[in-house]
């Protein structure tokens, strides 16, 4: 990883929050290195980039400086093990606005079960989940701020995340599902019975 803390501090942020429709999905695909190979129209609209600006770029193009590093470390470790990951992620649009997503990231396998790419669908997060996640992210960020080197940062904050989960008595996945309202959004918008 590049020591980009200084660069990120200089990232322009407007403090303005963007949202998208609860019936929409922000979809992207990446190669095994995390370079964008597909971004749907909702992605382009919400992040404020054209398809041409996104294809081939690292997915960190939408990284927001207020996201703790250890979350991405966990994300990549889990993906590398061939498992799906759920995460509440704060992203930064091109103009400096921010938007919260509930991301579901999964590996794509070939016939021989090798990971050939990654996929992500993002949904509008429920407020209940965000109010649970934001204080955790803030404390993780607080730990990371004490270090200059990205590796030192996640090495210090990951145990804090693990400890937080341990206190909740749940696995990471169980915790995420426990704070996530399920079904309500679709029920409102499509009238489909759950």
């Amino acid at each position: 990883m590049v020591p980009e803390t200084r660069a990120q501090k200089m990232l322009h942020l407007t403090g303005h929050e963007r949202t998208f429709d609860p019936g929409e999905l922000i979809v992207s695909k990446t190669d095994t290195k995390g370079r964008i190979t597909y971004a749907n129209q909702v992605f382009q609209r919400v992040a404020g980039y054209t398809e041409g600006e996104l294809l081939g770029k690292a997915h960190s193009i939408v990284r927001h400086p207020d996201m703790p590093r250890c979350v991405f470390k966990y994300l990549w470790d889990t993906l590398g093990a061939g498992r799906e990951v759920f995460a509440y992620v704060l992203n930064r649009a091109k103009c400096g606005d921010h938007y919260w997503v509930f991301a579901h990231v999964t590996p794509t396998f070939d016939q021989r079960n090798h990971i050939i790419s990654y996929h992500s669908s993002r949904r509008v997060p429920c407020r209940r989940a965000l109010s649970a996640v934001i204080p955790i992210y803030q404390s993780l960020l607080g730990v990371e701020k004490r270090f200059g080197n990205p590796q030192d940062q996640w090495k210090a904050s990951l145990p804090v995340l693990v400890e937080t989960l341990k206190q909740s008595g749940m696995s990471y996945d169980e915790f995420i599902f426990s704070i996530t309202d399920q079904g309500s959004i679709t029920d409102q918008h499509s009238g489909a019975a759950a």
């Binding site: 509930f102 399920q182 029920d187 918008h189």
Partner: peptide, 10 residues
Amino acid sequence: FRRVLLAGML
């Protein structure tokens, strides 16, 4: 606990 997420499905 891992249910199919209904959000965004029509």
